[in-house]
Simulated assay, not measured.
Amino acid sequence: MPTQQKEKAVTGQHSQTEEQEQELQQEKNSDKVTRKEQKQKKQQETSTDKTTRKEQKKDRKQEKRKRKKPRRRIFPIWLRIIVVLAISAVALAAGLMVGYGVMGGGNPTDALKWETWQHIIDIVVKKE
């Protein structure tokens, strides 16, 4: 009898370890499934977060545009162009007068006369 009890005890231990191994296997498999599910949930959450973030960003931009007052220029662009051209003409005239009068030794107002420029053109071209 003692040998039968030992055999039962040994087989009982063996069956218990097999059961434990099977339970461990099932737990591992269930862990794998839950991990996959968790990953999928995270991916879905992040994808919905991204779309909502994009939508939120668009909404913020639209709100900024609505709040922004239209800019009314006090000094319009066409007037700026005219002013720049006028300043350029004045600078050209001043440069001619300084160059002809101070550096050239002539009368500064002569630099603005047409006869002076015609004489300069004749000297440069020299018709013979």
Rank of each mutant, 00 (worst) to 15 (best):
V83W: 01
K69F: 07
Q44P: 00
A89V: 14
V84C: 10
E18N: 08
I77H: 06
Q25A: 14
E18F: 00
A9D: 04
D49C: 10
E7W: 00
A91E: 07
A86F: 07
A91F: 04
W114S: 08
I120C: 10
A94L: 13
T17R: 03
E55Y: 02
V102E: 08
K58P: 07
W117S: 07
K41H: 01
Q38T: 05
R71K: 07
Q118C: 01
V98S: 12
A93I: 14
V90Q: 10
R60A: 13
I74W: 07
H14C: 03
E23A: 15
Q44N: 12
W117G: 02
Y100V: 14
N29D: 14
T17Q: 01
Q13A: 13
M97E: 10
G95W: 01
R67F: 04
G101W: 00
V84F: 11
I82C: 12
K39V: 05
Y100I: 14
A111T: 13
G105Y: 02
Q43K: 10
T34S: 08
K39W: 06
Q43P: 00
R71I: 02
A93E: 09
R35V: 11
K61M: 10
M97R: 11
S47V: 08
K54C: 03
Q62E: 11
S15C: 01
E7N: 07
R65N: 15
W78C: 06
H119L: 04
T116N: 03
S15M: 08
Q13S: 08
T46Q: 14
I81V: 14
H119S: 10
G99Q: 14
Y100N: 08
K58M: 12
M103P: 00
E18P: 00
G104R: 05
M97G: 12
L85G: 07
M103K: 03
S47F: 00
R60T: 13
K50I: 13
V83M: 08
T109N: 09
M103G: 01
V83P: 03
W114C: 09
K39E: 11
E115S: 03
M103Y: 00
Q13T: 08
R53Q: 05
E45I: 12
E19D: 06
R65K: 15
I120T: 08
G104C: 09
E63L: 14
K113Q: 06
I82G: 09
A89T: 13
K61P: 00
Q62C: 10
E19V: 04
I120N: 07
G105P: 04
T34I: 05
S47Q: 12
V10F: 02
S47K: 07
E21W: 00
G95A: 10
E23L: 14
H14A: 07
K68V: 12
T11R: 09
K41F: 00
F75S: 11
D59N: 09
H119G: 03
I74Y: 07
Q26A: 14
R53D: 01
Q56Y: 00
R80S: 13
T17E: 02
T17H: 01
L112N: 02
R65L: 11
M97C: 15
G99W: 12
I120Y: 02
K28M: 10
T48D: 08
E45M: 07
E19S: 11
